[in-house]
Design a protein around this nucleic acid. Structure first.
Lengths: 119, 119
DNA sequence: TAAGTTTGTTACCAAAAGTAACAGTGACAA
DNA sequence: TTGTCACTGTTACTTTTGGTAACAAACTTA
């Protein structure tokens, strides 16, 4: 008669918060989720990303890409074209974040409708 | 014969990235998602949050709470108990983020299993 | 030779996050 | 009545992260 499973147990809450903290460590910063979403659509080169992700700077982009590569969410491949191009591609593991990016994007679209009004 | 709907169209990708950018502006920083998730379980006081969200500092917590309040995701209510206590509660709108926090937490749990191994 | 493309890096500055100590109010205990 | 505790923050300071602009190396095209 001590623990009749309180609503959401304290343990469950703590576990959830810990899990979220883990994720936010990997996806920290303003840009990583956008980069991953972009690469989930298709692989891209450095300059493509620079153009598609509006507002990111070259320096930040290359650092974020390194971080994501270290965490095995994307791969970096140098093609011996002329001039050399570099392709960034989502890994199979990175692609498991697709649902995360989708849910975030969906909420963002609703939010925009709510805040900015129609359209 | 010009636009037979390329795979994911450029427009769709741009729209997604814009939406994600909007969300990351609101949920920027390491802590906001954790705070929201915690408050989705049930309302809490300042010190509760400080204790449950491991690693956050008082200063950061109070700033994040202010940000979330400005964005109408949570409410702040001063109760005239002795001593005064302050209750933070998720708003109806904030609760629409529940799915986002759930998906993130789920991914985090899987990630932990993968990286750290069992358990 | 000059200018452009591609993938970055470097040096510098600004903004955000983190740390630790403190403050004001009241309760409670000796 | 004096000291200690709980609660909700704030202040001053340091560290980390983000942003800007210029540059670099290698090759192509005019």
């Amino acid at each position: 008669m001590m623990e009749i499973a309180e609503r959401p147990s304290k343990k469950e809450c703590a576990k959830t918060i810990m899990a979220i903290h883990d994720v936010m460590d990997i996806l920290s910063g303003k840009w990583k989720v956008s980069i991953i979403a972009c690469l989930c659509f298709q692989k891209r080169r450095y300059t493509d990303l620079l153009r598609e992700i509006n507002g990111i700077s070259g320096k930040v982009l290359s650092r974020e890409l390194k971080d994501l590569e270290v965490n095995q969410l994307i791969t970096r491949t140098v093609k011996d074209t002329q001039p050399i191009t570099v392709e960034y591609e989502i890994t199979e593991y990175g692609a498991t974040l697709k649902e995360v990016t989708n849910v975030i994007a969906d909420w963002g679209l609703e939010h925009r409708r709510r805040i900015i009004g129609g359209n």
